[in-house]
């Protein structure tokens, strides 16, 4: 065996690249930000080419439609409904985008054989997955920003219209003081800085779902399975806290019930924790520490799901 190997070794030694070629091929890094960003950039471009931003048109229509439809209501009702509908639509669209965009990534790369081309090069599988996830996260961030900007514009426009109407109306019992209080109330009913943590929480939930969907797609047999499973987890995740409370309170029930509740509590994320917008729109200011803890939880979920996706994908036969 050793004698058979010797000529190969010798030939390798004789064909060793010249120092000039070594400069052209720097040593392979275990982790390269450049490679990850190249994959992320390509993923983002691919998704943009799929015309995913068309959903923004629907979002704009929802915004303008709800804004115009609400004219018959009082200004407080108008703003309440406008904010609820807009932020609700933002939440649905970012979540859907996260699930649909991520579910297609691996199957599409396998179908058009891009995956083999990439992995045949010295690109670790972790970098491939990380690049894909970052691509989706950037897409989600762009979408959230655009939707947030549209929302702010419509809200501001409605605010100005209502203020103008109030000033034209006048004639209040408390005089100018009451008019000023009314304008303050109008402004407080529209845009408040506390909306921003709510929008970030919407993004975090979508990002969590992108990581979770990526994890599912590493072992799923089809993208339909990935989407259906993600949607199911979305619904279960929103009642996870109910199951957890019931389980931890130990309110009786059969062993089977307890095992089921424990599994729901342990396997699924508590998505209600990320539903901050409902309460923010209701006028609750969220404490910074509470928001940071929620954001940290979202970050931990994303990291764990990415690691698990890598763990499964590492030995996956392609």
């Amino acid at each position: 065996m050793s004698t058979e190997n010797r000529p190969d070794t010798a030939s390798t030694q004789t064909e060793a690249p010249a120092p000039r070629n070594l400069a052209l091929h720097p040593p392979h890094k275990a982790f390269s930000v450049g490679r990850v960003s190249a994959i992320a950039r390509n993923t983002l471009l691919e998704l943009i080419r799929l015309k995913v931003f068309y959903f923004l048109l629907i979002f704009a229509l929802v915004l303008i439609g709800s804004s115009a439809f609400m004219i018959q209501f009082s200004f407080q009702e108008q703003f309440q409904v406008l904010k609820d509908v807009s932020l609700g639509a933002m939440s649905i669209f970012t979540w859907l985008l996260a699930v649909l965009a991520t579910a297609m990534l691996l199957p599409k790369d396998i179908e058009d054989r891009t995956l083999y081309t990439i992995l045949a090069k010295p690109v670790p599988r972790f970098e491939y997955l990380l690049g894909k996830l970052i691509g989706v996260l950037v897409l989600l961030a762009l979408s959230t920003l655009i939707m947030g900007a549209l929302f702010a514009i419509v809200l501001y426009a409605r605010q100005e219209i209502v203020i103008a109407e109030t000033l034209r109306g006048g004639g209040m019992e408390g005089g100018q003081e009451q008019v000023d209080a009314m304008i303050r109330e109008i402004k407080a009913s529209t845009f408040t800085w506390s909306l921003i943590p709510g929008v970030i929480a919407i993004y975090l939930k979508a990002a969590l779902f992108a990581a979770l969907t990526l994890l599912i797609s590493t072992f799923a047999t089809s993208w339909i399975f990935t989407i259906v499973t993600s949607v199911a987890i979305y619904f279960i995740g929103h009642i996870q806290s109910v199951a957890r409370d019931y389980w931890l309170a130990d309110q009786g029930g059969t062993v089977l019930t307890k095992v089921f509740l424990a599994l729901v509590s342990l396997l699924f994320p508590d998505l209600q924790l990320f539903n901050l917008v409902d309460d923010i729109v209701a006028g609750n200011a969220i404490a910074t520490l509470l928001f940071l803890k929620t954001a940290a939880l979202g970050g931990i979920y994303i990291a764990v799901y990415l690691f698990l996706a890598y763990f499964i994908f590492l030995k996956k036969e392609l």
Binding site: Q80, V81, D84, V85, L87, G88, S91, I92, Y234, F235, H238, L271, Q272, N275, V277, D278, V281, A282
Partner: peptide, 9 residues
Amino acid sequence: SGFRSIVAD
């Protein structure tokens, strides 16, 4: 499912 505010509206 997290759409409490929309249902209320």
